[in-house]
Amino acid sequence: MISLRVIARLLDYPEQALFDHQQELVAAMEPASELDLHHSAQLILFIRRFCARPLLDVQAEYCELFDRGRATSLLLFEHVHGESRDRGQAMVDLMDQYRQAGLEIDSRELPDFLPLYLEYLASRNKEDARGGLQDIAPILALLGARLHQRQSPYAVLFDLLLALSGTEVKSTSLEEQVAGEARDDTPQALDAVWEEEQVKFLGEQGCASAQQAAHQRRFAGAVAPQYLDVAQATMGIKGR
């Protein structure tokens, strides 16, 4: 599914190369049949508007949206296991899935980073890719609902992923739940998390939280080269 690779690139940290190759991104959608005309037009419109903005503004917005707080984190297991010990084993299991598919990631990247998982699914056949999206459909819907609430343009990408999954799960069904949530990206909420982590890691020199590591992630070089050569810009979590 070429559209999965395109969405994976759009959900990764914005780089100049993405902006330079926006025409290739759009062109890659022409032969794609997995999205209907309406959804394909939505994705192309997102690309046009996304790349029309100053890169520094887009990068700042990305960090504010996905790296502050956990509610909109792109680390999938954050929404499943939180800080529990089960998260570590889930990471190991997912890494095994990637290796069995011929994919390797470097030490800078966490295996449950959504763009990486989408890249993995894009390398599978259509049936497996849809099954992988269905596995994470509840997470996609929750993230989509939170992004809609924040009036973020990124919300449409999650609606498109749900459409590709073929499930009946929709972000709109979670609007009421999300409306009652307390924001975790306010200065007060972030200070509370920082104080908690300071106590937790006091005296552990060199220890960085997963949230700090997320700021350093970069997708380039994280997957096997044969999956990166799509015009230089284009591109389940089973738990069983």
Rank of each mutant, 00 (worst) to 15 (best):
A129W: 07
M29L: 15
Q59C: 04
L118T: 01
E64N: 05
Y98C: 07
M29S: 08
A90S: 15
Q100P: 00
A101E: 04
Y120A: 12
E61Y: 07
E61H: 10
R99I: 07
R146V: 01
L45K: 14
M29Y: 11
P54I: 05
L121Y: 09
E119V: 01
V58F: 08
L65D: 00
R87K: 13
F113Q: 01
S33N: 14
L147V: 12
R130D: 10
G144Q: 02
S84K: 13
I105A: 03
Q100C: 10
H148D: 04
A28R: 00
T72G: 10
V26L: 15
E78G: 03
L35Y: 13
L140W: 03
L110I: 04
S107I: 01
L121P: 06
D57Q: 10
L76G: 00
M95Q: 14
G132I: 02
G144D: 02
M95K: 14
Y120P: 11
R70W: 11
M29V: 10
Y62N: 00
L65H: 05
D135L: 07
G69R: 03
D112S: 07
S123G: 15
Y120W: 15
D96C: 02
G131Y: 09
M91P: 08
A137I: 13
A129T: 05
V58A: 09
E30V: 13
E119L: 04
E34H: 01
H79I: 04
L35E: 13
V26P: 13
R68A: 06
L43E: 02
L103P: 00
Q100M: 11
H79N: 05
R99T: 11
R48C: 14
L45I: 10
L103M: 06
F113E: 03
S33I: 14
A90K: 07
Y120C: 09
R130Q: 15
A145E: 13
L140P: 02
F77T: 08
R70D: 12
L110G: 02
E64R: 00
G69P: 06
A60M: 06
Q100Y: 10
S73V: 01
I44G: 02
H38C: 01
S73G: 07
D67T: 01
R130K: 14
D57H: 09
Q100E: 13
L35H: 13
A122S: 06
E104K: 07
Q59M: 08
R53A: 14
L133E: 14
A145C: 13
L143Y: 03
E104D: 07
Q59F: 05
F46N: 02
A71T: 07
L37A: 15
D135Q: 12
L37D: 14
L45F: 12
A101H: 04
H39I: 05
L103D: 04
D112N: 07
K126Q: 09
C51N: 09
E64H: 05
H39D: 12
L74H: 06
H81I: 01
D36H: 01
G144I: 04
L116K: 13
E61S: 10
L94H: 00
F46L: 09
